[in-house]
Simulated assay, not measured.
Amino acid sequence: MAKKHRQKPANLLAQNKKARHDYNIGDTYEAGLALTGTEIKSVRAGKMNLKDGFARIRNGEAWLENVHISPYKEGNVFNVDPLRNRKLLLHKQEIRRLDEATAGKGLTIVPLRVYLKHGYAKVLLGIASGKHNYDKRETLKRRDQDREIARAIKERY
């Protein structure tokens, strides 16, 4: 039998793979993204980098900062700054919860992935606390052990 490969969902546009390695992720929230016309075209083409991005609550509004969206190739004068701050579309209650959660020491809001839902770009945000190096090593060790256990069970049955 052929090996089954994990494929990313068809609507997944960008993913922050380092986030789960560098942070412990708590609650997650889905937020809409306010984008210009050329930005959404570039996002649909997969020209987005979430690696160093984070979200911040300012004046009762949520903003996505330090996320790079490459300029659209055919966009000419309508292209905007690739690193500009983009507004996140959330309910007032969700913004308040995020603000209260990050008011605590050592917590931040990290974008985990960007995907399309009913034609709109959505961001999955996670409330994150930083991991220490020994936590990262422990996670890698646990993952290797789980892989070995799964391999042994597969060979046995």
Rank of each mutant, 00 (worst) to 15 (best):
49 N>T: 06
115 Y>G: 05
31 A>C: 09
111 P>E: 09
81 D>P: 01
47 K>S: 10
137 R>A: 10
32 G>P: 00
62 A>P: 05
78 F>I: 01
74 E>R: 11
133 N>F: 15
96 R>H: 09
99 D>H: 09
48 M>Y: 03
58 R>E: 15
58 R>N: 10
43 V>T: 01
37 G>F: 08
13 L>S: 00
66 N>M: 07
101 A>W: 01
146 D>I: 07
153 I>H: 08
157 Y>W: 11
6 R>H: 09
97 R>P: 07
94 E>D: 12
85 N>H: 13
145 Q>H: 11
85 N>S: 15
136 K>A: 11
83 L>E: 07
1 M>Y: 11
65 E>K: 14
82 P>K: 10
140 L>I: 11
77 V>I: 14
100 E>Y: 06
129 S>L: 05
37 G>D: 05
133 N>L: 14
125 L>I: 05
7 Q>S: 11
18 K>Q: 14
37 G>S: 07
66 N>C: 02
103 A>I: 00
129 S>H: 09
155 E>N: 10
19 A>S: 03
80 V>K: 07
105 K>H: 09
135 D>C: 08
12 L>R: 04
29 Y>Q: 08
101 A>M: 05
90 L>C: 06
51 K>Y: 03
113 R>A: 07
36 T>C: 07
81 D>W: 08
73 K>Q: 14
133 N>Y: 13
10 A>R: 12
94 E>A: 07
43 V>W: 03
151 R>D: 02
147 R>Q: 10
14 A>S: 03
149 I>L: 11
56 R>T: 09
121 A>C: 13
149 I>G: 01
20 R>G: 02
75 G>L: 12
134 Y>R: 13
95 I>E: 03
19 A>H: 03
118 H>S: 13
48 M>S: 04
39 E>L: 03
144 D>E: 15
82 P>A: 14
122 K>A: 05
48 M>I: 15
27 D>F: 12
90 L>K: 03
39 E>H: 01
90 L>D: 01
98 L>D: 04
80 V>I: 08
47 K>Q: 10
115 Y>K: 06
111 P>R: 06
86 R>P: 01
106 G>S: 09
60 G>D: 04
42 S>Q: 02
81 D>V: 09
91 H>R: 15
157 Y>G: 06
100 E>W: 07
152 A>F: 08
99 D>L: 05
16 N>D: 04
92 K>A: 14
145 Q>G: 00
35 L>N: 06
149 I>E: 02
144 D>H: 11
125 L>T: 03
34 A>N: 07
104 G>A: 15
102 T>A: 00
13 L>T: 08
147 R>E: 09
101 A>E: 04
75 G>A: 10
128 A>I: 01
22 D>P: 05
